[in-house]
Simulated scan of single mutants.
Amino acid sequence: MTDYQPTPQSDQLALTGERTVPGIAAENYWFRRHEVAYEYILDRCAGLDVLEAGSGEGYGAAMVATRAASVTCVDYDEQAVEHTRRRYPELIVHQGNLIDLPLADASVDVVVNFQVIEHLWDQSAFVAECHRVLRPGGVLLMSTPNRITFSPGRDTPLNPFHTRELNAAEMTELLAGAGSEASGPNVTGAGGGFDVQQMLGVFHGATLRALDEKWGGSIIDAQIERALAGDEWPAELTDDVAAVATADFDILSATDADIDASLDLFAVAVRR
């Protein structure tokens, strides 16, 4: 756990469906599912220069800033950027396009990109930019919903804000190959790419598995079905969702669990 405190309701970024924000009871499951990845990387970021590419509300970058030497944020959304600057003054925040990052070559040690790649049209160009701004041996930490479990049996993503979702093999291929054919003034290390050091997955722990059983097999489906139908949530469901904590999720490696059954994928990739 960290000493980070969630955003108070009085300074809350609007919930659009495209990003998650802290402090909303009915959104808490998704917030904690995202937050657990930030908790997992805190020690890895200690004393380093970190970029969060696609920083959203800013809570994750603020968590990382409690350990890192510096944290720079880049996000395309003007409202999110203004909110992050106001709420988290310890962060350096730029508005910009993720496929043209406003950072110098080899300027950071770590790039964090959580729950963003699935929103991008040109995923390879973005990963090439991550390669460019990382120092040699730098690390790209990337999470994304697992296509197999997030949009099962669908040709297009279930979430209308997603452009292309990935499974573990597709994510590995993207990271290994991106930037390998790129050249020009904004690309260093042409022929680069990343070595995927670890492919991890986010899974429900014991408490959430019990809630899955309680809510007819899936607490996720229980939330989505009621949201799509516009039904009022029963108080018990609201209470169960509001009580979810990061400790209720497990992050497991591909050697310890079936990665294709994970909820979210989490890659640790080293810049070649």
Rank of each mutant, 00 (worst) to 15 (best):
T149Y: 04
R154P: 01
P145G: 13
L98C: 10
R85A: 04
R147V: 14
F114E: 09
V81W: 01
V93G: 07
L98Y: 02
L101Y: 00
T163P: 00
H83A: 14
P157A: 05
L141K: 00
E170Y: 04
N146W: 05
R164W: 11
A62F: 00
A69S: 12
V111N: 09
A65V: 05
D77Q: 07
L158P: 00
V74S: 10
P152M: 09
V133C: 12
V81D: 06
R147M: 10
G153L: 01
F126R: 08
G177S: 07
M63E: 03
P160S: 14
D109V: 03
Y88V: 07
V111P: 02
T172N: 13
R132K: 06
R85S: 02
P89K: 05
R154Y: 05
S70F: 00
I117T: 08
E173N: 06
A178V: 02
E165C: 10
I92G: 11
F150G: 06
D105M: 03
D77S: 12
P157T: 01
A69P: 02
R154N: 03
E173L: 10
R135F: 06
L175G: 00
V74A: 02
G137S: 09
Q123K: 14
V64S: 04
H94K: 09
H162M: 13
D122G: 06
A68F: 01
V110I: 15
